[in-house]
Design a protein around this nucleic acid. Structure first.
Lengths: 222, 222
DNA sequence: CACGCTTATATTGTCAACAATTAAATTGAT
DNA sequence: ATCAATTTAATTGTTGACAATATAAGCGTG
């Protein structure tokens, strides 16, 4: 009957998986660099057994690529691969937004508005600090996917695809462009959610993401 | 300069990963059953090290669920989870079909027609053998996803989601219903691909999959 | 007979050592 | 000095043993 309810039993492989994943999406482990098992096992103070299990989980998240008898490398995304990710993201977040429109309560929408208000305040006050800005952008999308109620969709987008996007942003050191435009679109999306307009919500979200995708395509063709 | 080009170097963990995955989607490892490491390591003649790595890869494919200090269990999908998968599938295969419409050549479409002809022949001749039928259905979708040209989309659908669908079909011993209707819709889809009608192709594919999804929802509500 | 506690067993988690393969360094020849 | 071949070193793949945890069995008490 102790207050041990929150303590989640975790294995070494799981904790070091989290640590390495964070290191990758923060750019501390450079894209394309080799994942050296002896070095990392020393660094994290564990043996190679659980480390290798963690690496296999990272492979499942597509954050590293393993070549037999050679080792794992931190994934490095080129622009074509980023476009592929945005195509998938556009489709799935459109779905998520449509589902969210059919499920979101008034409190949910209020929470979204508050989130947007916080972001706007942060942008206005400290224009230079891009970090919170881009994380904030993902926060908004994160919450909408959560409201969709589709657990598997949530796990895929928030547990895999968003991490890859963070990696690409760090890699190209590109925050999300046109923040003021993005905020307008975000509010439009919440409007649609409040009105329970599923089709409009899906369309607005897809268009919102398509904007970022088209920016990438322009970079590619230029 | 030997003819060793095709020989792919593979590790024990990778080969046993394939074997266990096949065993799971064939139903030889029952959904919900425990994954016993000592037993499997004896069965496949390997030690627990690479076996555990294989299990971690299966976790990445969502085919097993691992609880720390307890072990892995073969995933068992309830109908709600199956509906979640079909929602994702509908969205992503709609995308794949639209992309395929913009990329598919005449030869590609011919190949699709031949595939459908083979399936029809098989259905007519041996009506009872459901196995080829359902695998055939996935073959059609498999090819379209390949034609989309989006490698990541292909890997996710064909390397993860389809395996889960096979698992659910084995689990509920339900082949795809209404095969004659399905064939009509398949041909309509190829028509749209031939005409390079991206919007129609996407719409037809989404409707095609939505049919199966709605069947599930009816089962749930009844 | 049921229930809780203790003991025993089995399974998972972790480690360190060895084998196999790859990458790096050295050597030697042209 | 450059390149190839050989040797050396480092890294990956695999194994078996040990520790920690969880599951099952046995035991006693109410």
């Amino acid at each position: 009957m102790e207050a041990e309810v929150l303590s989640k039993p975790s294995t070494l492989a799981d904790t070091v998986f989290d640590q390495i994943r964070t290191a990758i999406v923060k750019g501390e482990l450079a894209p394309g660099s080799k994942v050296n098992e002896p070095q990392l096992s020393r660094q994290y103070g564990i043996s190679r057994g659980p480390l290798r299990e963690a690496i296999r989980r990272l492979e499942g998240c597509k954050l590293v690529e393993i070549t037999p008898n050679v080792g794992a490398k931190v994934v490095s995304l080129n622009i074509e691969q980023a476009i592929e990710i945005y195509e998938i993201r556009e489709s799935l977040e459109g779905l998520a937004c449509r589902l969210a429109a059919s499920r979101a309560t008034a409190e949910d929408c209020l929470k979204l508005r508050q989130l947007l208000a916080n972001h706007e305040k942060q942008i206005e006050s400290e224009n230079g600090r891009l970090y919170y800005q881009k994380e904030g952008d993902l926060d908004f999308h994160y919450l909408i996917v959560q409201l969709s109620g589709n657990t598997r969709l949530f796990n895929f987008l928030c547990g895999e695809l968003y991490h890859l996007l963070r990696l690409y942003r760090v890699q190209t050191s590109s925050g999300p462009s046109r923040p003021e435009q993005a905020f307008k679109e975000h509010h439009q999306i919440v409007d649609a959610l409040e009105n329970r307009d599923e089709e409009l919500a899906e369309m607005l979200m897809k268009r919102h993401i398509a904007g970022a995708r088209k920016t990438l395509i322009n970079q590619l063709n230029q």
